[in-house]
Design a protein around this nucleic acid. Structure first.
Lengths: 155, 155
DNA sequence: AATGAAAGTGTTTATCC
DNA sequence: GGATAAACACTTTCATT
């Protein structure tokens, strides 16, 4: 049995957890509304948010934008294995191509795993052509979002 | 040449783009601040945000929470290929295990590509043991975030 | 679609516990 | 860490263009 699941000293207390959960659902919830929800004063809630920001738990308040509504009707996960000596170049290329909306450097055969959003299959082809000059790629088209980005357990 | 890159009828005009970019950086920017930035009145900006929400471009105002600050010091990408007849079961399992913070159903050999956050290697082992009863898995440890979640081109 | 004005709310700072 | 109170700022609605 590993001990890291029954966390005796959770980073967040129950009130912080409720604040984080509510703001994850709507980051524009007013401090006054948050305060009413948790039964505290607005200044106390503002203080807690400041601490959550300073401790790095809240990295940013951001937007969830739907790529489909912007015309990116196709999404793919591309595994990328740079050719010998091309790692830095490939890394820069991924960072430069804005259709790559996310990319992780990972262990194993594939050096990078990236998410790309596209307007069409020909758009995908155009981008892969730029990458395959310097790397082997393996592309999987996204058919459905089984789990949408969500919070991990907060304790 | 494919026509979908030189988008003649962009979904968003220049002002909408600035609103979306500013809110992506800080979703709690006040409507009054947004209005000053784009040189409009606050009610006009509020109207535009309402339209961006109703058209589905803004799916939600949300939080970017750092898993590391919550003690999830390890992150992995797991490719999952359910054993024959286990697809539905595996899908449910991934949805139930909260450490899977994201999962896409994709074409190709791997049926699912998931992101998992973990407190330790033994934590990873415990979760993979639950999955490997019903699926073959292939795990890549995330070494770095080459491209952090970002907006695709807005035109 | 956008504006200005006004009423209603929310935020912030200082002070106290 | 948390509360209250007051000054200041923001939001929302409505009439107007």
């Amino acid at each position: 049995m590993h001990n890291d699941l029954k966390n005796e000293n959770p980073v967040l207390d129950g009130i912080d957890r409720r604040l984080v959960e509510t703001l994850t659902a709507n980051a524009r919830t007013t401090t006054a509304d948050l305060a009413r929800q948790v039964g505290m004063s607005a200044p106390s809630v503002a203080d807690r948010l400041r601490r959550l920001e300073e401790s790095g738990v809240i990295r940013a308040y951001t937007l969830d934008v739907d790529p489909v509504a912007l015309g990116y009707t196709l999404e793919a996960i591309v595994r990328i294995r740079p050719l010998p000596g091309q790692l830095r170049h490939v890394e820069g290329l991924i960072q430069e191509i804005p259709e790559f909306v996310e990319c992780d450097k990972v262990t194993g055969d594939d050096c990078f795993i990236a998410r790309v959003v596209l307007r069409s299959i020909s758009h995908l082809d155009g981008i892969l052509e730029r990458v395959t000059e310097y790397a082997e790629t393996n592309t999987a088209i996204v058919k459905a979002h089984t789990v949408r980005r969500r919070l991990p357990p907060l304790r």
